[in-house]
Amino acid sequence: MFHYPFNPSELSETAKLWWDLFGFYLAVALILGAVIYASLVLIPVLYSRSRKSVDEIKPGVVPGDRGKTLYLAMIVLLIIAAFMSIFVESYISVNKLASLIEDEYGVNVDNLEQLQPGEVDGALIIEVRAFQWGWTFIYPNGVESDVLYLPEDRLVIFKVTSDDVFHAFAIPDLRVKIDAIPGQVNTSWTIPEKPGTYRIQCYELCGVGHAEMITKAVVLPQDLFDFWYKSMGEELKGLEGKG
């Protein structure tokens, strides 16, 4: 039923950002981890009980402080350097997430929740309402749907809120996630890059139906999406006209 990617970072702009960053963290972790693990395994093996000569622990004597200041300072500085590199990278990435839409679309990310449909050229603003236990997606033309249809290659901004309890709205493959809090409108955005069907699920325990709070996001090519959007809108108008 669901399309599964060959390369997960190609699915959306946010996914690309995420996977790049994850790769960086993973590389740092693997390099440092390999060194640390090697010493953690090798040292006990190399220095096991055969060398009986060392015995610096005497009953009733507080062990002294060991370690040259120089070595200690080097270790501390090394760890701080590793931390700095990670911090700088993550600081850049957080800003990148904002500038992704600020530069291209001229959106001010600071007050996204006040954004009205049509205010940003080319962007699609979708209202997401979470409830126990399901989702409603409301499009600018008033169409309501429980399946999320998204256009390919277009900025989509989600305005997420909840009708009852704390939920978390997520399209994991597209790397979209934001908490749905009653009384508050949170925003998240992405630019889907590949047509397909993706899982939408709730990521915060919200009661007995939590596991079944699951639906799908369908990314359509632009023209197909426009067709769907228009025809749904007209159908809605027709219904209203009748009513």
Binding site: T14, F22, S90, L97, K177
Partner: peptide, 19 residues
């Protein structure tokens, strides 16, 4: 500890949170 560093980043948290 290393996996904890991954959680310190709001961007990476898009996938990690609640998972």
């Amino acid at each position: 500890g290393f996996s904890g560093v991954f959680n310190s980043n709001p961007v990476l948290d898009i996938a990690n949170r609640g998972s």
